[in-house]
Design a protein around this nucleic acid. Structure first.
Lengths: 182, 182
DNA sequence: AGCCCACTATTCTAACATGGAATAGATTAC
DNA sequence: GTAATCTATTCCATGTTAGAATAGTGGGCT
């Protein structure tokens, strides 16, 4: 896998309420939800759900619906809950640029949906980025001119931009999603 | 494929001289070369070479070496050469952040190795980023507050950082690689 | 001499990702 | 009435990816 999987996001959504695949998919398609953040195909989502079930993080239950195809409703297990909590509050923010955009914003989204405070999340991410920023500055001094040097400089610039941006995360209001849970 | 493949970079390297897999790998492992830019595994490189051969962009020739395993030396075909030139001078810079870091820096690296001027490359990329930046500013005004909005703002900040960084690309000297071609 | 390690050079394998189409009933639109 | 679209899921073929496996060479150590 290319590092970033929506595993924990799904666990977070299921922590709010048991849901079936199609319901979960909405969060990844709606551009006001996670649509800007992830680009997840249908089959991928169902594949991930299957994997999570195999790992014992969720359990599925077939639900017969009168005038609709049978659904599989997934519920979080205790194990899954633990995994999610670890992810949310013990973030391992790799501070790679993509990680921040995708993982951090997902964390924020889920935390808001669950009506949890987000200050700590933002703070953790900020600290991690500052640390990485500092580390890169040191690395730059040890790097010979050339492509490698330019790459390091770009990463430094990127992290700087994130640091300027991140404080806005707590100021920007999250309208609808707050109460609206389909 | 997840968008970014080293296909054209390999073609560019083969344009300098026919090489076998292990030789090409050096460019992706050496941190002063493309090591900071790509993270390519051995098997991946060989897989790409096979694919390129299937597409008729390169041809492989088995070379028996006296006291070493047989190598396959790949040579660029006319088609491959065309494909590379198109990529280098007709860049389609998607201006996604990752694209710039990986693709643009690769272009720069190859152009330098081939002793070609880089001013045009930088200029193209800069223009593309400015365009994307502008487009995102418009998009921001049409986006409701929430996660989507934050995502757009982050992208704007990232592009801004790139624009500040990109002018340095022509100023930073590229030492050794200029003449040294293993 | 015997052994271990690192380097050159490539292949294999199993798991996972990905895009796309297939299925199939329900509802809405014209 | 039939076409399109929505709900809900599965299936498939192809491609990517990490990691180990292979295999020969040369060097250093004891």
């Amino acid at each position: 896998m290319s590092q970033l999987t929506p595993d924990e996001v799904l666990l977070g959504l299921l922590a709010i309420q048991p849901s079936h695949g199609y319901q979960l998919l909405e969060h990844f398609r709606d551009l006001t939800k996670l649509g800007q953040v992830w680009n997840l195909s249908t089959s991928q989502l169902y594949a991930v759900l299957k994997r999570l079930e195999q790992q014992g993080l969720i359990v599925g239950q077939a639900i017969e619906v009168i005038n609709a195809p049978t659904r599989t409703e997934y519920t979080l297990t205790t194990q899954g809950k633990n995994r999610f909590e670890t992810w949310l509050y013990n973030p391992s923010p790799l501070s790679s640029i993509r990680c921040v955009r995708v993982e951090f914003l997902s964390r924020l989204y889920i935390a808001r949906l669950q009506n949890r405070p987000t200050a700590a999340l933002v703070e953790y991410q900020k600290k991690a980025c500052m640390k990485a920023h500092h580390h890169l500055l040191t690395q730059r001094d040890q790097t010979a001119p050339g492509i490698g040097f330019l790459a390091v400089e770009l990463q430094i610039a990127q992290l700087g931009a994130i640091l300027q941006w991140i404080d806005r995360c707590e100021l920007v209001p999250f309208n609808e999603e707050e109460l609206d849970e389909t």
